[in-house]
Design a protein around this nucleic acid. Sequence first.
DNA 1: TCTGGGGTCCTAGGACCC
DNA 2: TCTGGGGTCCTAGGACCC
Length: 426
Amino acid sequence: MKAIVDCNSFYCSCERVFRPDLWNRPVVVLSNNDGCIVSRSDEAKRIGVKMAGPYFQAKHIIEKNDVAVFSSNYHLYGDMSMRVMDALRAMAGKENVEVYSVDEAFLDLDHIPFEHLEEFAQELKQVVEQWTGISVSVGVAPSKTLAKIANHIAKKEKEKTGCVTLLINDEQQRTALQQIRVNEIWGVGGAYADKLVNWGITSAWELRNMPEEWAQANMGGVAGARLIKELRGQPSIIMKKELEVKKRIATTRMFGRPVTELCELKEAIATYTSRAAEKLRRQHCAAKTISVFIVPRGDDHSTSFHHGPAISNCASLPSATSFTNELIGPALKLVDDIFERGKAYKKAGVMLSGLVPDDSIQGNFFCFPAKHTNRFLMSAVDNVNFSMRDDVVKFCSSGISKNWKMRQELRSKRHSTRWNELKVVS
DNA sequence: TCTGGGGTCCTAGGACCC
DNA sequence: TCTGGGGTCCTAGGACCC
């Protein structure tokens, strides 16, 4: 059996742990640059605040109902996420937890006797809440997809389920799948949901009863066939045991205001390159390719969100590297190539690909892999920055004032990661 | 005025190899 | 007149996830 444990309104819950005065007030958290609403408390959902909707459109409901609004505070959420995952590992065993996202984890429960599953699921919920202050929903079923559906029901019918739902026998699964619409299934997005409805398939139960060959032909090949198996309770999406190394690393951001100057664009790209290189070193890899993109403001208002198309360019590096100083140069050269004077840019990003383990970098005849001094320098920089939880040491090309930075006007304090922002209880 | 930032997997088709 | 039969690797694009 598999379980999925999912934090309820995660970002909002994190804010509330340190703000008891918000426990009965509606709360929302905004995306980077204070653009969209990405987390809503139950109270906020009830008064009609839409998920992923633009903040400015919801402002009138928010003000009318005295909703507490926060910019996203990733220091806080990252730290709380670690605490939740640690609690799950303590309960289910380290090797049985697969962290799926910042607020979700799959658990392998094959070691729990069938008759104790319910009790164990309840205990999971209770322990996480007691240890971290974050409330969670738990879904248990034979496959990941069914567990996701169980979790979906647990959340949707909170009063009835108490946020814990098990779909562990045929009867439970049939009843559940009959009430679930195809667009609510994990792995069925908007495009397939529309197609399915056009074919006359509206419930998860109907989809479950389609032949695998049909799904193979019509729903993205093997992925479709796998989905049908999962819905029938045959586990086909395996548990990932360890943290997998990423195959591609990206750092991209919207600007706080349109950027027109080449030097500012370069500061941003240098900053993003440093971040991406840091992520690269954390997974002990080096990159062979770097690409840079910039997004101008659209000329007219016909394009979606008033963006123009992204303009990008990439470069192969002479040899794979994870050293920030070897990456910033090529990145800035790419900016020179694609920048157009007179245009205003809204967004930019850096992507690193062609990743290889950093202990087996192949040099070439004309270019030797960089010396060890670079490695020592980078790990010293990483150590300082990590221990300070900030970019205390950085490259000059990243700029000092950074007035292109994203808006984060409503961010709460970083209570759990900064000494000088500790919560004071009086 | 104002709409985020990451990722994954799969397939098809083209270039190239012997 | 008449021109094979395998492969591999890479990229773009589509679909999906939170």
